[in-house]
Simulated assay, not measured.
Amino acid sequence: MTHVDAETAHRGGRSQRMNWLRAGVLGANDGIISTAGLVVGVAAVGVSREPIVVAGIAGLVAGAVSMALGEYVSVSAQRDSERALLAEQQADLARDPEKECAELAAIYRHKGLSGDTAQRVAEELTAHDAYAAHVDAELGIDPDELTNPWHAALASAVAFTVGAVFPLVAILLAPDASLVPVTVVVVIVALVVTGTISAALGGAKRTTAALRLVAGGAAAMAVTWSIGQLLGLATA
Rank of each mutant, 00 (worst) to 15 (best):
R206T: 15
S66Y: 00
S48K: 10
A164I: 13
G56C: 05
P175G: 01
T126L: 00
V187E: 02
T235D: 06
A36Y: 04
A68H: 00
S81T: 11
A236R: 14
A23G: 12
V25H: 08
A157N: 05
N19W: 08
T117K: 09
E123Y: 06
A44L: 07
F160M: 04
G24Y: 01
A174H: 00
L38R: 12
N29R: 09
R120V: 08
L230E: 05
D116L: 11
F160R: 03
A159H: 03
T8V: 15
Q90D: 02
Q229V: 11
Q119N: 05
A210P: 14
I188Q: 06
E145Q: 15
E98N: 06
R109A: 05
V39Y: 02
G70L: 02
V158A: 15
V189K: 07
T224P: 14
D5M: 12
G12A: 14
A44C: 07
M67I: 00
M67D: 03
Q78C: 02
F166M: 06
G217A: 09
I171G: 01
G63Y: 03
R206V: 15
A218W: 00
D136R: 13
S198F: 12
R120Q: 15
E124Q: 14
E103L: 13
A155H: 08
A68L: 06
D30A: 12
H128Q: 09
V75Q: 03
T207R: 13
V45W: 08
S226G: 15
I52M: 11
V184N: 08
G31I: 01
D129H: 13
A133P: 03
A219H: 09
Q119H: 09
G163A: 08
Q89M: 12
T194W: 06
A36H: 02
G217Y: 01
R22P: 08
A122H: 09
I57F: 09
A215L: 15
Q78S: 12
H3M: 14
N148H: 10
A9R: 13
V40C: 11
A43F: 10
A6H: 12
I32F: 05
R14M: 15
A209I: 07
T8K: 11
R95M: 00
G46P: 10
I188W: 06
E124V: 14
L125G: 05
